[in-house]
Structure formats: structure tokens, C-alpha cells
Design a binder for these strands. Structure first.
Length: 496
RNA sequence: GGCCCUGUGGUCAAGUGGUUAAGACACCGCUCUUUCAAGGCGGUAACAGGGGUUCGACUCCCCUCAGGGUCACCA
């Protein structure tokens, strides 16, 4: 009989959601959905010093933004709550007491200072730093004496010093640890709060977690946790340790590597779909070689067996490429909605204008989105549709504004456009081409300076698309303004 | 340092004893074109090293080396 699959993502709220954490959450979600299971979110806030409420909010926000929806957890509830470890202290204390009563755990009165000193000694002696079980067999008298000294005890688990602890990992296979490398680790701190290795086990059991899918850094913790499972008489879940995500220099991801949190990527203009797609590809691969796919396909095909064992270095270039793909393929209204906050932030439009100019923004996006990789870039790329040109790209000036007849040509072009009754792609293009034909010029000789005049740049969408969207009046105005600029700066003069 | 994990091009990554060792990103050409992208076509580039096992190893075993993780009253 197979139990319903239940997995969990259990972040500690000590910072933002990292892309590594997001990937772990994603794999849990994919596995749960693939198996019609339940995805639980649990907040591991037992570190009273470092846990912050703002972090919880940020993590939830990031997960929602990515579409990593949990079935049970904060703001959602469920039959196995509460989902904050700080609200489950009674349970841990009860289980710890049980261990105490059964003689499987004991109070330890050593102070952090004493412990640190001994650890250092052992290190100096070239030995592995481990607790030697000093308080393992304390008599009542010793205990009373320590209590009288005002020492607050921790609770340690009695770990067997012989034999081995075996981790059967779905991704890594059988991993054997000698028990002699384990020590009597702390399960309850002196403040009555459990440590990670204890709380995690108690909760995974209480929440009926069937598969523990987490980052590889936890593999070495697993034998300890297995000892807790055994002491408590719990059945073991299945374990799967997914490879880590490393920075480009092969070290662990940290702030010095630029953007690492989900929110930073979002603010840089990456779409959630792109991040999900990219993260899915880090450590896992689909059956076929098509690398662009949505979460539905990932859910359909996801198995832990196809997760590879090697740590992956994340590559922003590939993420950016995927982002570019979604930028041009996703629904136009959706991209338009996404671009607005970026435009507002950059001062290109105001919040109020965004509603009124929605259709116009949408058309600008339609013209430019092929050429941008991120929302941030795209916002810059369409800025000229909303704000007058204030400067001209230098290399463009040299190339297109410094010719003898540059100003005159722009003026003639403006006139030709002005005469048009119908202002369409066809009519404007025709006007330009017949003008240049009559002057014995190539159309490009007018097109390029015009682009520079009305956008300030040498690159961008097709000129006539721009002209039509920008409108006759504005186009003509900008062309004349550019002609003035050229005269002022002198034909043949180099860029200012 | 002890223990554990890992090792296919610059990066991601197929591959599970016999393959011309896929594909993608990046890079470089060509093409399309009013520019830039996008698209199309093509190219450079890899099984860490050494021993075994085998008729035959990228695939299995051992050693070396390299990278990573972990050794807290952090998770």
C-alpha cells in the first residue's frame, strides 16, 4: 500500500529566497504534482536570533511570484499545522522528554565556552572535533551541582558509537557513514528550542512527509537525522539530495556574485516563466531535447531518477536567452502588464498614464520586444515613444548627421511626410522612397538619419513601424528638431 | 584535517559495455535586411589522469588529482 506522496520545502526565514532555494522548492513541487501528491511549505524559524518576519513575507512573495504554489503552509493552513516551527515548540519538548524518559537522550551542562575550548584543543591535536560524551552519565549529584551553578542544560541524543548509518538516497544511491564519526549532538538548545536536526525530523514525521527532497548540503546531516528517527521510533522517509547550484567561480552562491535572490532577478526584468524554465533545466533534463517548456510539461515528465548528481554552475547568459524567448512569445497583454512597473520606475510614464496609454504601450512593446532580453531593457528600448529625444547616439551622429546635406535631407523628409493624408506603413515608406529616388539617393540614406532623429539611436524596430506609431506630428517635429541640431552643431562637425 | 558527494566542450546537459559522443547557451562565420534583433544555415570545442576487468570501455572496479559539501546551543 502506497501512502500519498507528501513533500515539503522548509526554508529558514533568515534572508531572501535564493535561486538555489527556489530550485529546491521547484523540484519538490514538480515531484508532488507529478505524483498527485501534496506540497507543504514549512517555515523553520527556530533560530530566534536570525529569523525575521520580513524574510517570511519575502519568501512567500517570491514563491507566489514564481508560481510555486504550496498546498499546505503559511496563509493556507492544512491538517498538519501550524507550519511555523516557532509555534510547534510543545511538540518538540514532548518528544525530547520522551527520549529523556527512555534513556535515549540526556542533559548536558557544558557551556558553549567550554565546548569551544575543547573543540579547539581537538583541532590542534589534529583530531576531528566531536563531543566526547562528557555528560552522558552524569549522576544526580553532578546534575544538582551544575544546576546550582545556574547552568542551563541542553539535551543531547545518545548516538551509538559502533556500526554504520546508511542513507538510501534516490539520487545518490547508498551512502554509508561510520557511526564513529557521529557524536552526541544537541537536539534541544538551552533555551528550550530544538535544533534543526531534531525539529526537522519531528515535523517531517508529524506532517507525514514521504520524500525529503533537499539540497546536497544536507546529505552529511542525514545520518544524524536518521539516528533521531530511530530513537523516536519513526519510520524513515525516502531521501533525495539534489545537486547544489554554484556561482560561476564554482563557489557557493553569495551576494558577491551579483543577483542571487529571486526578487533581484525579478527587478532586473526577468520573467517568472523564464526563471522557472531555466531552473528546471539545472540538474534535470526532459526526455527530449526541447529546452523551452512550461511547468505543465515539467510536471508531466519530472522524476527524481532523471535528476543528475553534479553541482551546476548557473549561467545568466542562458537565463537571459530564455527570458528573451518568453519576452517575445508570451501573450502581448501579459508582457505589457509586466513592462508598466519598469516604465514607471524609470520615469518614462506615470502610474496614471499607464491606463490611458495602454494600447499605445502595447503597440510599442509589440514593435520592440523581439530586440530585448529583459523587461528592463525593453522599457529603455521603447522610452522614445513616450519621451522626446534629448540626445543622439554619438556614433550615429558621426555616421548620419555629419554629411553635407544631412539637415536638408531631414527637412525634405519631414515635408514629404507632412503632405501625407494617409499615414500608414505603405504611404510613409512610399513617400521616403520616392523622395530619395528623385534625389538619386538610396532609401537607406534617409532612413538611418531619420531613425537617429526620432529615436536618438541607430538601432531599433523598422523605421516605418516607428513612424506610424509615433504619429505624423511627433515624427515631423523630431525630424525638424534634429535638423536644427545639425545646423547648430555644424554639418561635418563631430558629435558634441 | 576527518567524513561524504561529484568529475562529458567555457557553461547547462544527453548518454547506463560496441554511437560519426546528441542537443542548448555563449562564441565565430554566412544568410535575410533600412539598422539592431529574431529566424535560417554552418563552424570551433568534451569523456580529469593512471591502472585494471573485458574481445571491446565515457559507461564497471581501484588509485591519484581536482572541485564541492559538512563537521555550531545556524538551518
Amino acid at each position: 500500500m502506497t501512502d500519498k506522496v507528501r513533500v515539503r520545502f522548509a526554508p529558514s526565514p533568515t534572508g531572501s529566497l535564493h535561486i538555489g532555494g527556489a530550485r529546491t522548492a521547484l523540484f519538490n513541487l514538480l515531484f508532488a504534482r507529478h505524483n498527485n501528491g501534496v506540497f507543504v511549505l514549512r517555515i523553520e524559524d527556530t533560530d530566534t536570533e536570525r529569523s525575521r518576519e520580513e524574510s517570511v513575507a519575502q519568501i512567500l512573495r517570491s514563491m507566489r511570484w514564481l508560481g510555486l504554489d504550496w498546498d499546505e503552509g503559511p496563509e493556507k493552513g492544512g491538517d498538519y499545522g501550524p507550519y511555523f516551527q516557532s509555534q510547534r515548540l510543545e511538540l518538540y519538548r514532548r518528544e525530547a522528554q520522551r527520549l529523556l524518559d527512555e534513556g535515549k537522550a540526556y542533559y548536558c551542562y557544558c557551556t558553549p565556552e567550554e565546548l569551544a575550548a575543547r573543540r579547539e584543543e581537538m583541532m590542534k591535536a589534529g583530531k576531528a572535533p566531536r563531543y566526547e560524551g562528557l555528560c552522558r552519565n552524569l549522576c544526580d549529584e553532578d546534575r544538582k551541582r551544575y544546576e546550582a551553578e545556574g547552568r542551563k542544560p541542553v539535551i543531547r541524543l545518545k548516538v551509538p558509537q559502533e556500526g554504520q548509518t546508511v542513507v538510501e538516497d534516490i539520487i545518490r544511491g547508498t551512502v554509508v557513514f561510520e557511526n564513529s564519526v557521529l557524536d552526541d549532538f544537541i537536539i534541544m538548545k538551552s533555551n528550550g528550542v530544538p535544533t534543526y536536526n531534531f525539529a526537522c525530523v519531528v515535523d517531517d514525521h508529524a506532517m507525514k512527509i514521504t520524500h525529503v527532497i533537499r539540497a546536497e548540503e544536507h546529505l552529511s546531516n542525514t545520518p544524524k537525522q536518521i539516528q533521531v528517527y530511530k530513537a523516536l521510533g519513526y519510520e524513515l522517509p525516502r531521501f533525495a539530495h539534489v545537486p547544489m547550484i554554484l556561482a560561476p567561480d564554482r563557489s557557493k552562491l553569495s551576494k558577491r556574485h551579483g543577483a542571487t535572490s529571486v526578487e533581484e532577478f525579478r527587478d532586473q526584468g526577468y520573467l517568472s516563466q523564464a526563471i522557472i524554465n531555466y531552473l528546471t533545466l539545472l540538474g534535470w533534463s526532459p526526455l527530449d531535447s526541447e529546452e523551452i517548456f512550461d511547468m505543465d510539461k515539467a510536471v508531466r515528465e519530472f522524476t527524481l531518477e532523471r535528476v543528475n548528481k553534479t553541482a551546476a554552475i548557473y549561467d545568466v547568459k542562458k537565463l537571459t536567452w530564455i527570458n528573451g524567448h518568453y519576452l517575445r512569445e508570451l501573450d502581448l497583454d501579459y508582457i505589457t502588464d509586466q513592462i508598466i512597473p519598469f516604465m514607471v520606475k524609470k520615469g518614462i510614464i506615470t502610474e496614471e498614464e499607464s491606463g490611458k496609454k495602454y494600447e499605445y504601450i502595447k503597440q510599442a512593446v509589440a514593435l520592440s520586444r523581439d530586440r530585448s532580453k529583459t523587461l528592463d531593457e525593453l522599457a529603455d528600448a521603447i522610452a522614445f515613444f513616450f519621451k522626446d529625444v534629448t540626445e543622439y547616439e554619438e556614433k550615429g551622429v558621426k555616421k548620419h548627421f555629419c554629411k553635407e546635406n544631412a539637415a536638408e535631407l531631414l527637412l525634405k523628409g519631414a515635408e514629404a511626410l507632412e503632405r501625407l493624408d494617409e499615414f500608414t506603413h505603405e504611404s510613409t515608406e512610399h513617400a521616403f522612397r520616392s523622395l530619395t529616388d528623385s534625389m538619386g539617393l538610396k532609401a537607406a540614406e534617409l532612413i538611418h538619419p531619420t531613425r537617429l532623429a526620432i529615436t536618438g539611436r541607430t538601432v531599433g524596430p523598422g523605421l516605418f513601424e516607428i513612424i506610424v506609431l509615433l504619429g505624423k506630428e511627433e515624427t515631423v517635429k523630431r525630424m525638424r528638431k534634429a535638423a536644427d541640431w545639425i545646423r547648430k552643431h555644424g554639418a561635418g562637425a563631430s558629435a558634441s
